[in-house]
Design a protein around this nucleic acid. Structure first.
Length: 556
RNA sequence: UGGGGUGUAGCCAAGUCGGUAAGGCACAGGACUUUGACUCCUGCAUUCCCUGGUUCGAGUCCAGGCACCCCAGCCA
């Protein structure tokens, strides 16, 4: 039995690395996370980030952050900051190793010339349509370009003039000379460089020819000394090209490309295109909408980096396409928050309770435990008064079976406070319950009865006078279907994915809450302070509800 | 009659030289409980896509099928 070289769960990539380390192929490992800065990072990227940086951490190697900015037609710079912020927030550090593919443009150009000199690349002057036509189909081989046998000198000259800007976009491309009959379409003389008279956010107008992904990526990896270049499954077909290019121009050892299955989660979408569509159509409010699986959305929703890292670890790494249950993500979150979130009481849908035998104007401060999982979190004083609010759903005039909250004649415990018994139900002329009258037992202060009598239910409450008003945003899945990729995207939107409650009440201690602070509202769930919060308006997001066995009982 | 991948429970996923199916989530019971939370117990694949074969023994090896995913951007 081999001793595992790392603490994390076994997966095929670790097996490969263990082998490379044991065989002496590598002394240390170097990985990289190479986003194209053209969108916001999402939980799928988090899987890759945790994988790459996690591997580097566990094996004592390093992980580079490299922006893949080879195609300057997009608005790169805007996204770079958010990507760096998200990686940092997730808890990873690239140290000095921040790179840009565009940093290698000079070297890449030299490698291209080397390929030409070897007679393994040529300038092709077919039009875009012609190139497609010559490429053949999946089942039929392609045909060789009539420009395929240009002399090295002519290719060198043409490529140089391409670089100098003598040609218009699309007039020529540089292609690798491989095999137009290859069953792998990627190998049918792939394009290495194209002409684009566009300035690049980092290199300005220095270049009007830009390298393609396949040419850039393998060489960037090699230049940085990457040992294991981990990417997603769709690049499997590109691996022969990745290796081919390095074999022609780069000395060994070469980085090894390894593909794994990207993350899919049910009830949400992960593609940049679809995310963009949701944002642009206004279905959600920006990239950091708490209903989105973007890192910024999850952060605003109240997710912790620890929970996301734990999730990334639990889902594993494999090559089989799969769809992970959203419930696992939520489980990881609750697991983390349960340990760290301070508890507080909040009433989302207030129902006034008047404790008729409690002295008017009296205020008592009762002690509440801040976190039963963590004694160091201490206690707080909670004001108790004659009039309080309780959750509307904690009272039933005609209680169903197994309901052990408040009902006429029933006694319950107010958390950290007293036992109260319902004596009257006050209704308006429409028959709606507007108030409940109770009596309290002064002997039960703190929540326990000296006579040893028990109550089945404990409910949360808040002082009517002292509590603060708050807005609470309650979220549900953005989509009603498990796989929103099926069918028309916008037709599967859950109309109830956001419920805004404007008249919630929270404990007075929340006056000092700051954006992104996280709490457990007892018996309800975990909530965090939204940055929309202002001096006179508290806004909370429901991060995730507590598990609710009672809700399940009711359904059945 | 193109090529490259992948199939282990409802969902992820481990499974080393073939030695008698880890773990997590979900779910279902029960215990505990001043959160119907947490925690703790218990249950949850006689079988690994199918069919044959090799073997004392197959999820692991061999052969043949089947299903699903990816590839024909001057995107990545």
């Amino acid at each position: 039995m081999n001793k595992p070289l790392s603490p994390s769960p076994s997966n095929f990539i670790r097996t490969i690395i263990d082998g490379d380390l044991e065989s002496g192929k590598h002394k240390t490992i170097v990985t990289r996370f190479p986003p194209e800065p053209n969108g916001y990072l999402h939980i799928g990227h988090a899987k890759s980030i945790c994988l790459n940086f996690g591997l580097a951490r566990d094996y004592g190697g390093r992980c580079h952050l490299r922006f893949d900015d080879t195609n300057p037609t997009r608005d790169y710079e805007d996204y770079m900051e958010s990507i760096k912020e998200d990686v940092r927030w997730l808890g990873f550090d690239w140290g000095e190793h921040l790179y840009y593919a565009s940093d290698y443009f000079d070297q890449l150009y030299e490698f291209a010339i080397e390929l030409i000199k070897q007679g393994k690349a040529y300038v092709c002057s077919l039009t875009q349509d012609e190139i497609r036509e010559y490429r053949g189909t999946l089942t039929e081989p392609g045909r060789e370009s009539p420009y395929r046998n240009r002399s090295v000198e002519e290719n060198l000259d043409l490529f140089e003039r391409m670089r100098k800007g003598e040609f218009a976009d699309g007039e020529h491309v540089l292609r690798a000379k491989i095999d137009m009959a290859s069953p792998n379409v990627v190998m049918r003389d792939p394009i290495l460089y194209r002409i684009r008279h566009v300035s690049h956010p980092r290199t300005g107008d220095k270049w009007c020819i830009y390298p393609m992904y396949d040419f850039t990526h393998c060489l960037s990896d090699a230049l940085e000394g990457i040992t294991h270049s981990i990417c997603t499954l769709e690049f499997e077909n590109n691996r022969p090209l990745y290796e081919w290019i390095l074999e022609q121009v780069f000395p060994e050892p070469h980085p090894q490309q390894i593909e794994f299955a990207r993350l899919n989660l049910n009830y949400t979408v992960m593609s940049k295109r679809k995310l963009l569509r949701l944002v642009e159509s206004g279905v959600v409010n920006g990239w950091d909408d708490p209903r989105l699986p973007t890192i910024s959305g999850l952060r605003r929703r109240g997710y912790t980096p620890e929970a996301i890292r734990d999730f990334a670890e639990r889902i594993g790494v494999a090559k089989a396409n799969s769809v992970v249950d959203y419930a696992l993500l939520e489980h990881c979150l609750r697991d983390d928050l349960n340990e760290r979130a301070e508890r507080t009481m909040a009433v989302l849908r207030p129902l006034k309770v008047v404790i008729t035998n409690y002295p008017e104007g009296q205020v008592e401060y009762l002690e509440g435990v801040n976190n039963p999982q963590d004694p160091a979190a201490g206690t707080r004083q909670i004001p108790f008064t004659r009039e309080i609010y309780i959750e509307r759903e904690d009272f039933e005039e005609d209680p169903p079976k197994k309901f052990f909250r408040l009902a006429p004649g029933r006694e319950v415990r107010l958390r950290f406070a007293y036992f109260i018994k319902c004596t009257d139900v006050i209704k308006d002329e429409m028959g709606n319950i507007i108030e409940v009258h109770c009596t309290y037992d002064p002997e039960t202060k703190g929540g326990s009865a000296p006579d040893g009598r028990k109550v089945k239910g404990t409910i949360h409450w808040v002082s009517a006078e002292h509590s603060l008003p708050a807005e609470v945003r309650v979220y549900d899945h953005l989509f009603t279907t498990e796989d929103p990729n099926e069918g028309e995207l916008l037709e599967n939107i859950n109309p109830n994915s956001l419920e805004i409650i404007t008249d919630a009440r929270v404990e007075p201690r929340m006056r000092s809450a700051k954006p992104f602070d996280r709490f457990q509202f007892e018996r309800l769930g975990y909530f965090c302070v939204d940055p929309d919060t202002t001096e006179d308006r508290l806004v909370f997001n429901r991060t995730v509800p507590l598990r609710d066995t009672w809700a399940k009982v009711q359904k059945s």
